[in-house]
Design a protein around this nucleic acid. Structure first.
Lengths: 133, 133
DNA sequence: CATGCACCCTGTAGTCACTACAGGGTCAAG
DNA sequence: CTTGACCCTGTAGTGACTACAGGGTGCATG
């Protein structure tokens, strides 16, 4: 399996696959006579894991930890649970922030009468103490 | 007003103030005999505008545009409205993404029986076709 | 007058997770 | 034998800062 096929199979860019190798998430594969990377099914599994983790918003460092835990199959699942819960808490914080932000934005936009900038409420809302910038 | 007071007044780091100057959001202020930056009330107003915009999630480029529009007070408010609406649409997209993500995470976490990694549902959920990594 | 300390200066490099080249090599089809 | 798709390495860029390193300034205290 060349890097192109692996990338296609996992919906990843070729450069990204090489980057995962560089930062140590994906082990260096064998090389062909022409120095092409040759991947096996284990690489496909590992890269799929990485991509799914990224899609769920885990950082690369969290995925590195999860991979290390997944490799050590005897270990208790507790640490995995801890990482996942910490991440969920993070996502929920961001969600709350964005919700607040969206409602502030909607309010600001609703006030715009669309006259001239001189009396634009959006600009006013951005300026300190409602004064134009 | 030195850079430190300005930074404190706007809840900004000193380095960030200097960075806004470097990228052209904040005009270069006068200098003291000892080469210290000296800011006036206009700088305070402009920096407050920038910080409020950032807090609302506008990018630096969007703020650059908003500042240019705000400076040209004759112009119609339409462009300001366009920028704000585009940003709101962006925020709403992110909000939808995060909401989906949080529910997926909650599901994954709920499945973890916290035994050994070998039968950890979180790891399985991250692996392709439910198979361990 | 000397010292110390908080503050300021410039400039560069690092963060995160990639992305985008530049400048070349390899391979299979026509 | 040439074309074109693919691959290689290495470096630099993205956004919005942040973190130094290595120095200068300004003011209070001894």
């Amino acid at each position: 399996m060349t890097i192109g096929s692996l990338a296609e199979a996992t919906q990843t860019r070729v450069e990204t696959v090489r980057w995962y190798e560089k930062v140590g998430l994906l082990p260096p594969p064998a090389r062909s006579s022409g120095n092409y990377r040759l991947y096996g099914p284990e690489h496909l599994r590992r890269l799929s894991f990485i991509r799914r983790g990224r899609a769920l918003g885990f950082t690369v460092e969290q995925i590195r930890d999860l991979l290390a835990l997944a490799d050590d199959r005897e270990r208790s699942c507790g640490e995995v649970d801890t990482i996942a819960r910490a991440h969920l808490a993070d996502v929920e914080r961001k969600l709350a922030d964005l919700t607040r932000l969206a409602s502030e934005l909607r309010e600001v936009i609703g006030q715009c009468g669309c006259g001239s900038v001189a009396d634009c409420r959006i600009i006013e809302a951005l300026s300190p103490s409602g004064e134009p910038a």
